[in-house]
């Protein structure tokens, strides 16, 4: 469905008589330049102000960058990063694979909503940090417990968003399915799911941040490993610059992932951004 319609939307640009202002909308700055500028200003300020602070209490970009080079050279960063990524992605993907269908079912069926909704709502507010020691008892100190913590932190935003999405599908669209005698699973797959997709993607985005936090928590509490170990070890040595390396790295990674999800969203649900008239979010 996407490939043919995609080309159909691109073709008008090839037509010679299209007015120029359609091809190049307005003479405003592209979004990314504003973002880039804002980031540059932030780092410049941090660099200038950060230099005056005692290096134990704070750090600044150039020092962090040097520390970054150091731990890349001595070979601690890459294995730690891969180690963290493994539990992050396993838990995160599991949260989506389980959270989306769960949200669809809870949103669709009154019985499921009454029976399970309350656990999802309560689960979202679960003070996970307090439960990590318990999870360690259940899952041991290996990858399993980290995956479990990441999963538990990110599954609820995905589920809740999907649930809200299903609940807000207009009744009139469901009636289109009913009036053409679509069976329940077809209404679910071809009406409810596409109508809910923007909500699902929002949940999937929110879950990125949750999953990053969960991953570090898990690494603090279990056998010290991954990026969490670098943070703890360098903090114990009062090496603040090195401590900031994984912190910045994770924020960069989460931002990149969120952008990637936005791109995927515009591919799988192009009508949404066209409807709202926004180029990106």
């Amino acid at each position: 469905m996407s490939s043919s319609s995609e080309t159909a939307q691109i073709t008008p640009i090839a037509q010679p008589m299209l007015p120029a202002d359609l091809v190049k909308p307005r003479m405003t700055l592209p979004r990314w330049t504003i973002t880039a500028l804002s980031v540059v200003v932030f780092f410049a300020l941090w660099e200038i102000l950060g230099r005056d602070v005692n290096p134990v209490f704070g750090s600044y970009p150039s020092a962090i960058f040097l520390a970054f080079i150091d731990i890349v050279r001595d070979g601690t960063l890459l294995p730690a990063f891969l180690e963290s990524c493994k539990s992050f992605f396993l838990g995160y993907v599991l949260a989506i694979v389980i959270g989306v269908p769960l949200g669809l079912v809870i949103g669709r069926f009154r019985f499921a909503e009454a029976a399970l909704g309350i656990f999802v709502t309560a689960g979202y507010a679960m003070p996970l940090v307090a439960l990590v020691p318990l999870l360690v008892l259940w899952f041991g100190l290996g990858v399993a417990v980290k995956v479990a913590v990441v999963f538990l932190m990110s599954v609820f935003p995905v589920t809740i968003n999907t649930w809200i999405g299903v609940a807000s599908v207009p009744k009139s669209l469901l009636e289109v399915g009913r009036s053409f005698v679509a069976p329940g699973h077809v209404i679910m797959r071809r009406i409810i799911f596409p109508a809910t997709l923007p909500y699902i993607m929002a949940g999937v985005r929110l879950a990125v941040g949750k999953a990053v936090v969960a991953m570090i928590i898990a690494e603090f509490f279990t056998a010290l490993s991954g990026l969490g170990a670098i943070i703890i070890n360098s903090a114990n040595n009062f090496d603040t610059a090195t401590m900031f390396v994984p912190v910045v790295l994770l924020m960069v990674m989460a931002t990149g992932l969120t952008g990637l999800i936005g791109m995927i969203e515009r591919r799988v649900a192009p009508w949404q951004s066209e409807l709202s008239g926004r180029d990106s979010a």
Binding site: V176, S179, F180, V181, P194
Partner: peptide, 19 residues
């Protein structure tokens, strides 16, 4: 509902993600 009847809604009600 049944295939013996077809309805045209007052507000069209097209599925927005389909052409």
């Amino acid at each position: 509902c049944g295939h013996d009847r077809g309805i045209v809604f007052q507000h069209a009600e097209l599925l927005p993600w389909l052409t």
